[in-house]
């Protein structure tokens, strides 16, 4: 699906909020990394040059402010392969998702899927179908959005209270995660061991870059813990960061 040839390369920075573009040979993992973070209007305008854009959209309906964004697929059905799933809005254990693509691509995807698992569980698909065919899913989505919105608010508020003054973070309008950016001397991958020792965890930014960047970033999830636990987790992380900062100052003389 991903052709290895000269194509546009993007450098993604959620804080700079733009894409720098240059032409280069990209490895398959770089291409995957690119597609995973591709944002809407810029990419669509470039899609004509691309083999395909994969729109992986598990969080699209979890929007805390305003209406869900139009999908890329709705803007450009020819170049966009759309991946949907109920895993963020319905029990993820049912493992039900779908793909939208032009018939030629879909045919290949069907073959690939058959080779992987022959067929998804009929029972799980029926359960999901029943859930989605009525109106009840809208009510449950509404409840979920309310829950996640409160959790996001708790996290963003706690970050303001406990994180270092020179840290920055996103205030997401949807989804599960806040991205925090720390001073350059923090190494979020190494810090994880010390955080786990304090019984709080996050995903280091390096896991999201193919080229070793992201050392100073952390992805904080607010989806699962309750608001109290989110506040406590952020407090512990803040304490850790302030200890690290003190250590850094003592080391740099």
């Amino acid at each position: 699906m991903y052709q290895r040839r000269s194509m546009a390369e993007f450098s993604f920075d959620p804080f700079a909020d733009r894409y720098a573009r240059r032409t280069a040979e990209m490895s398959a993992s770089e291409v995957r990394a690119l597609f995973a973070v591709a944002s809407r209007p810029d990419v669509v305008s470039l899609a004509g040059e691309m083999p395909y854009v994969v729109e992986d959209n598990p969080y699209g309906l979890l929007r805390f402010e305003g209406e869900p964004q139009p999908t890329l697929r709705s803007m450009d059905p020819r170049n966009v392969i759309y991946l949907g799933t109920v895993s963020k809005v319905f029990p993820p254990g049912v493992r039900v998702g779908w793909a939208l693509a032009e018939p030629g691509v879909l045919q290949r995807l069907t073959l690939a899927k058959e080779a992987l698992d022959l067929c998804s569980s009929n029972l799980n698909m029926l359960v999901t179908e029943r859930h989605l065919s009525g109106e009840r899913w809208r009510e449950s989505l509404h409840r979920l959005v309310g829950t996640y919105r409160s959790r996001r608010d708790a996290m963003v508020e706690a970050l303001g209270e406990h994180f270092p003054a020179d840290a920055a973070w996103t205030a997401p309008t949807g989804g599960f995660y806040v991205w925090a950016k720390l001073s350059a001397y923090f190494g979020s991958a190494n810090l994880l061991a010390a955080a786990v020792e304090r019984k709080v965890a996050y995903v280091p930014g390096t896991a999201f870059y193919p080229d070793g960047r992201g050392r100073d970033r952390m992805r904080l999830a607010f989806c699962y813990p309750t608001e109290d636990r989110i506040r406590e987790g952020v407090r512990r992380l803040g304490e850790l960061l302030s200890d690290e900062e003190e250590l850094y100052r003592s080391l740099s003389g």
Binding site: G187, N190, L191, L192, A193, A194, E244, L247, Y248, L251
Partner: peptide
Amino acid sequence: AGSAMGLSFIEREADLPNAVMKALSF
């Protein structure tokens, strides 16, 4: 800590503080 976690090799004096900080995370 074991399994070479938090381990760094350094060639330059300037890299010592960061290496120490990394080790002290563990």
